[in-house]
């Protein structure tokens, strides 16, 4: 696709803390479905969004076992976004801020993301059509 757009998103929130995580992944989903290439710079707590050891749980309040509850893990949403991009011939380049990973011990991710640094965000900003920073508060 000659005129394929590339969008960059910088994320900061850890999972399960703020609606921003879901909104960010919704935005990435829409961009991928359009066939856009997407860059993600996961900064600070956002490096835990694709953390591989997230696990679903049962929910006694709902009266459902672990299978019935189908509890969302954002790592699965991230993995599904990579699959969707592959299916549509577009690309997600998801960079995990290395220092943020180290200080959190968040070294295990679902397949797809790679380790990087703020230099990657500079490259992303220069090479993409637009950048949206979704900060934490």
């Amino acid at each position: 696709m000659a005129d394929r757009k590339t969008l960059t998103f910088a994320l900061m929130d850890p999972p399960y803390e703020n609606a921003r995580t879901t909104t960010a992944l919704r935005l990435i989903d829409i961009a991928v479905r359009r066939g856009f290439d997407v860059n993600v710079f996961a900064y600070e707590g956002a490096v835990n969004v694709p953390f591989a050891k997230q696990a679903p749980h049962a929910n006694a309040v709902h009266g459902r076992d672990v299978g019935e509850e189908d509890h969302p893990n954002p790592k699965d949403w991230v993995a599904a976004l990579f699959k969707e991009a592959e299916k549509r011939g577009s690309k997600i380049d998801w960079v995990q801020c290395g220092l943020c990973v180290d200080e959190r011990g968040a070294t295990e991710w679902v397949p797809g993301p790679r380790r990087g640094s703020p230099a990657d965000l500079v490259k992303f900003a220069e090479s993409s059509d637009n950048t949206l920073v979704i900060p934490t508060k």
Binding site: T23, R26, L27, N130, L132
Partner: peptide, 15 residues
């Protein structure tokens, strides 16, 4: 729809 955000990002708006 949230698609508007993607449309306007792709359009190059300052976001």
């Amino acid at each position: 729809p949230l698609d508007v955000v993607i449309d306007q990002l792709a359009e190059g708006r300052k976001a």
